[in-house]
Design a binder for these strands. Structure first.
Lengths: 374, 374
DNA sequence: TTGTAAGCGTTATCAT
DNA sequence: ATGATAACGCTTACAA
């Protein structure tokens, strides 16, 4: 029973719909009619909100399923003042950066559990694209927003704050903008990497910086500086090269570093992608790792674990970061804006693999075995 | 990896903004009043639809911007019969699989150009999660749907077809379901890989299959079979091992293959991720590549290009696939359902790198230089 | 050129 | 326990 009469009321409208195709989705009124009750009752029966006689409730439910009725999310959001849209925006700079999909996955996992949709925005780190996306998300009445590795200037921050929309920022160091925050202690991360190297006797340690637009990049660099200073390492400015987080920039930086009169005995990169570039360049230059030069990355992307790469790196809990951001956001959405901003700082940890060893001129304890011998 | 302390010392920063907070977003009526015109005029002035006196139009626009007015997407979609929601769903199995982010990026690039939002759904290849996501997308009145590497059984396909929603499937071989389609010639891809190997003299070539739930996996396997048959290669069933597209399964399969009485001289994997597993396993087993065993992958993920990996593989145009899917979808959304289904089959191409060489017992032309020597 | 009013599909507030 | 009816914020006939 109950089959084709959806569309009964609005027949004649769907010109083109000739053969039984294009059966429009039934609306709540269709279900109501089919059940001989009012739309309100259907709504209540389905939402389990008000008291509805068990009998009617069952009837409505059965018919609704039979007809394939599904409430329109848009209509729902429009109605009911407290109505959520059950969707959140996720703004990332570059979905192709290996750390990002893992973060996204962490976010998705949590959101899925509360049946919240994820609107993905890829900004290519362009200011205007970023803002346009945010505006578009707001137009959609999203319940909340997660911003990964993005900086907002005062004007932008102010204009967004006005919306008093639940926001969680990820990988952005604290500023005046009071949003919830998830991140790691970047400084501690690089410092532990440098400490490890100096502990093995390295003194001439190079650093390849990340994109300057990121506060995380600054923090990681600080860790390097502190670590070098603490061990009385070489502070030759030529040992610091600007990169942009891409593999290629790691490659270029390495050629530059190895061309120095006194090349470094170890290279620390601000992320794994650049470290991979370092390894590639060294390989092509015929420099053995870790025999002649040690290499350390930051992030611990999946590929770094590969036996052919086997990169010593600082582990960044990417999945957990995403999951935590989503949890914070959902909590904020439920609690409302009156709670104090929450910060979650996860701890990175050094993972020692095969690209690090004592410097050649100081054959102390051997590393975990040479990784590549050219 | 040590959990972090939560809630840092940013207390004191959050003062509860009591008074002027929560300035709600202005609605069209607010703008109308502020301009002394009717809401209809505001709508028309902003949408540039009907003729509006240039003067009023400018006034309305200025005031709208001043007040920060933005039309509600939900209300817009709900109103106007022809109203699109300017959002599409993108269903993928695993965002962490390296080919996926690149496809996503291709989709995003095109969608962004037409200001259409991307709702990302990660199914983990679970049937129920997949269908739940699709339903949720339909509830949201999305304008269209892109399904990447997903199979739908008849019942599912039928129930979705009823919606007559614009759909583009990616990486799924043709079946009775008439949707637009983007894919590559998978069979030709693996066949070219096998041809290359047999051309160098290989006869005992192993194959690691992809997940059986995917039709692409079947097609790729077919290419292997055809290639082997054409060259009179070894059809020993032990040479075919089932994998699941993960790196780990490539590793396991390789140990199994190399433990055979007569191990293969070459291994073809149904994707790069498994091929990376193969390389890792061979490395750990002390088998030289390509000296003792040649390895070929499929996809050409970013990492395969790395000098330390340097994997010979079949290039799969991931970005272009995503972009093409989005173009097809947008076109379908605009053209309506009456046009015939369109199919787009892109051509894969073999990329010869360093993991392939003639078999040891047949030292013809050497490969492009040994990649790894253990 | 502009205003009025009728939807769009729900949920919420009243009555009954 | 249920049914009218008024929002929700917008677009678009239809009038003026």
């Amino acid at each position: 029973m109950v089959q084709g009469d959806a569309n009964a009321g609005n027949a004649g409208r769907g010109e083109r719909v000739e053969g039984g195709r294009g059966a429009q989705r039934p609306k709540i009124l269709d279900v109501a009619k089919a059940c001989g009750v009012s739309p309100a009752t259907v709504s209540n029966a389905l939402a389990n909100k008000r008291q509805v006689k068990a009998e009617t409730r069952e009837l409505v439910r059965r018919v609704a399923i039979e007809m394939g009725y599904r409430p329109s999310a848009a209509a729902r959001g429009l109605s009911s003042r407290a109505g959520r849209t059950w969707s959140v925006g996720l703004v990332v700079g570059d979905i192709e950066n290996p750390v990002v999909p893992t973060i996204v996955r962490g976010v998705e996992e949590i959101l899925w559990a509360s049946r919240t949709s994820l609107i993905l925005c890829n900004t290519d780190f362009q200011q205007d694209k970023k803002m346009a996306y945010v505006r578009s998300l707001v137009d959609r009445d999203i319940d909340g927003l997660i911003l990964v590795s993005h900086l907002f200037n005062d004007m932008e921050a102010r204009s967004i704050s006005l919306l008093d929309l639940p926001i969680v920022t990820v990988n952005r160091m604290a500023d005046e903008w009071k949003t919830d925050y998830v991140g790691i202690d970047n400084t501690a991360g690089t410092r532990s990497a440098v400490n490890y190297l100096t502990g093995m006797g390295h003194r001439r340690i190079a650093y390849i910086k990340g994109l300057h637009t990121s506060t995380a990049a600054e923090a990681r660099f600080d860790g390097y500086l502190v670590g070098i200073a603490a061990a009385g390492g070489d502070t030759d400015p030529d040992l610091v090269v600007q990169g942009d987080y891409t593999q290629e920039s790691g490659d270029i930086a390495t050629r530059q570093l190895m061309a120095l009169d006194r090349p470094p005995t170890a290279i620390v990169a601000a992320n794994d992608l650049m470290a991979l570039g370092v390894l590639g360049a060294l390989r092509n230059l015929g420099v053995s790792v870790p025999g002649e030069v040690s290499v350390v990355g930051f992030d611990d992307i999946h590929m770094s674990r590969h036996p052919l790469i086997n990169l010593t790196t600082v582990h960044y809990p990417q999945h957990e970061t995403g999951a935590m951001a989503a949890r914070l956001l959902l909590r904020r959405i439920e609690d409302g804006p009156d709670e104090l901003p929450r910060s979650m700082v996860l701890q990175p940890s050094l993972i020692v693999r095969g690209t690090t060893a004592p410097p050649r001129d100081m054959p102390g304890t051997a590393g975990s075995g040479p990784n590549i011998t050219v």
